[in-house]
Nucleic acid binder design. Structure first.
Lengths: 102, 102
DNA sequence: ATCATACTTAGACATATGCCTAAGTAAAAG
DNA sequence: CTTTTACTTAGGCATATGTCTAAGTATGAT
């Protein structure tokens, strides 16, 4: 079931950027507007928006417009796709280890 | 401790490619030579080698030359960096949820 | 009605990425 | 000792990525 999981491509790619991981860490602490998210990153707004777009495409965050500000938050179960894939691989590997130890 | 973890950049980036995830899935089942790894991927050898190099740089796999063949295997605790970062974020988020539910 | 704020769109640009072919090199087989 | 085999190196090429500036648009404040 995880063999050709194309969903994980943009997902892990999104996690591969430090700016985006910092955004996620910030959002783990609660909702934030785009400009709040932008502040710690000495970066032009459109550049930051690109990151947000990738996070949203990857289903790591959601966002909605409230007046002229956009509020972002972590998607529900944002991290489970990664955790599932990873623990699946671990399981296979550990099963293998059990055999090898005989 | 995970705030500016540059190690995770090449790490997650490596996971963001389907070819490389398939290689990891294969290696979870045990060691393999480069050509064994190459077989299921209709891809020129040098292209595949690039993927292996990225996986090795990311500390997801190790490899050693045995005669003229190179044997690859999963790095020890290959997946824990990712699992640690992910569960850290989950923890922060869940802590937050506890407050919000009051 | 005017102005400032908070994005948003459009376009440019340098570098990175994923792929290829062609030409090595080194070990094993015949 | 010649030929295969199994990588490896070098170089090229198209597209993707991460960044920017400049010019919108829409909403809130005065």
């Amino acid at each position: 079931m995880s063999k050709y999981d194309t969903v994980l491509d943009p997902y892990f790619a999104a996690l591969g950027d430090p700016t985006r991981r910092m955004i996620l860490q910030r959002l783990a602490r609660g909702k934030a507007s785009v400009s709040e998210l932008a502040k710690p990153h000495n970066m032009a707004m459109p550049s930051l928006m690109e990151h947000l777009k990738k996070l949203e495409t990857a289903n790591l965050i959601t966002s909605k417009k409230e007046g002229r500000t956009r509020i972002c938050e972590l998607a529900p179960k944002a991290f489970t796709p990664a955790q599932n894939w990873l623990s699946e691989q671990c399981a296979i590997w550990e099963e293998r280890q059990a055999y090898d130890d005989l």
